[in-house]
């Protein structure tokens, strides 16, 4: 039957039509509820932390929580945890390009005031 064939295809290394047969893992509603709760808690912590004076750490904490929330949304709401390596690589590539834009431009701005040279 064709269904069994497609499963064989998944393990056939020369299969090019569907090279990385990503399992159709269906994320359950329970997982979604846990993620939802985590995101709301994270938001509450972010707001509370903003009112506590931690000096230079305030933006660090805020961004760290935001990054964590983003990662959770990407992995679970957007299913990336259960997707093929290609998708994971693609997401990484996007953030890599963004990091390059930010850090290499910052290179200029940070060093403008260094010395007279």
């Amino acid at each position: 039957m064709a269904h069994e064939v497609s499963h064989d295809q998944a393990h056939d290394p020369s299969n090019v039509t569907n090279p990385e047969h990503a399992e159709h893992h269906i994320v359950t509603p329970i997982q979604y509820c846990l993620v939802f709760a985590t995101l709301l808690v994270g938001t509450a912590i972010t707001v509370a932390a903003a009112y506590v004076n931690m000096g230079a750490f305030n933006p660090v904490i805020a961004l760290a929580i935001a990054c964590t929330k983003a990662v959770i949304v990407i992995l679970f709401f957007m299913h990336v945890k259960y997707q093929s390596r290609l998708i994971k690589l693609t997401v990484g590539a996007g953030f890599f390009a963004f990091i390059i834009l930010v850090t290499m431009t910052l290179l200029d701005y940070i060093s403008r005031a260094w010395g007279m040279w």
Partner: peptide, 21 residues
């Protein structure tokens, strides 16, 4: 190709350090 763009800006006022890089 993503790492070299400021070579279009050497005389525009970027810092010498970043111009070097």
């Amino acid at each position: 190709g993503f790492f070299v763009w400021a070579h279009h800006m050497f005389i525009m006022g970027v810092s010498n350090y970043s111009a070097l890089v």
